[in-house]
Design a protein around this nucleic acid. Structure first.
Ligand SMILES: [Zn+2]
Ligand SMILES: [Zn+2]
Ligand SMILES: [Zn+2]
Ligand SMILES: [Zn+2]
Lengths: 156, 156
DNA sequence: TGAAAAGATGTTATAACATAACATCTTCGC
DNA sequence: GCGAAGATGTTATGTTATAACATCTTTTCA
């Protein structure tokens, strides 16, 4: 289901990174933030805010409400731990938090998995293209839909 | 306000293109579709569906409802006459409909103007980046935020 | 011409996504 | 402990988008 062999490792690593980033920046990695990050990392598929909300309710006694989840997601985004995919209204865990990066996303239309990549060539290309219009890039949203390699090999 | 000298030309041209594309593909360029296209083209800033809805209400006797606007927008998108900007939940007129194209958008954070561009270099870059992961691109969403040339020259 | 079919729009209701505003609780530094 | 800052709870509502079904309009073609 997941493109990794041991997805537990992905989750553990993500939580460790959350811990570390908060510690080193003097912020709190609260229980809710941890749980939301964990839920975002349940798979390599994008997580929807309201699904996270539901799953929180299953675990918790008191059901969380939307602001709780959106606040946690915002915190995680601000700290580079998750990314928002505009084209899907969904969130995905960052595979290399901490590093400053312009990244792009490969979204498989078949299996739904998303992978995050960085390409300095692509970044340069984007800067160049913008520069030709005299445009200064501040941030970019690059979301590519198609077929991942596994789904290309095994056409359903 | 608009980056073009005579924005009426932009509008006229867009409507002409709509007419032409529908004619040649045997579809109907109905009154609503025309009006929505016209409203999307009111400026070079992204148009929100519910704003279009409001503006339709001002013109019309019977106020339109959301599905009417969304249907028209979907039709216009399917026919390459408008694009949806995922990062803004908004729509923008296509500057060169008819041509198959992978395009990207430069969104000025200051003035709000959006310009649509094509760059074969960027397209290639994107394909290459995806190919390195064995990914086959079907469609892409490239939305770049920053400062347009005019807003860089005249810092407010 | 005048039904049947296809296409478009109207209408109602609701789903899905997101935030404002204010109350309360928790943590931390002192 | 106490006050300030930070985090979460709570209520309400704003914003974006679609499902489902009714009606109307246009086209087709017998
Ligand atoms: Zn994994
Ligand atoms: Zn990342
Ligand atoms: Zn113009
Ligand atoms: Zn500008």
């Amino acid at each position: 289901m997941d493109p990794c062999h041991e997805h537990e490792h992905c989750i553990d690593e993500a939580l460790r990174q959350g811990e570390e980033i908060c510690r080193s920046s003097g912020q709190r990695f609260t229980d809710i933030r941890r749980k939301v990050l964990q839920l975002v990392w349940r798979s390599h598929k994008p997580a929807k805010a309201y699904d996270i909300l539901e799953q929180l309710a299953e675990d918790e006694t008191g059901a969380a409400k939307p602001p709780t989840v959106y606040r946690a997601l915002e915190f995680l985004q601000d700290n580079g731990l998750v990314h928002r995919l505009s084209s899907l209204n969904a969130f995905i865990g960052c595979t290399h938090p901490g590093k400053q990066h312009q990244c792009y996303f490969l979204i498989c239309r078949i299996c739904g998995d998303v992978s995050e990549c960085c390409s300095s060539a692509l970044t340069r290309s984007l800067q160049n293209a913008a520069a030709q219009s005299g445009f200064t890039v501040e941030s970019s949203c690059v979301e590519i839909s198609g077929r991942c390699s596994r789904c290309s090999e095994n056409p359903a």
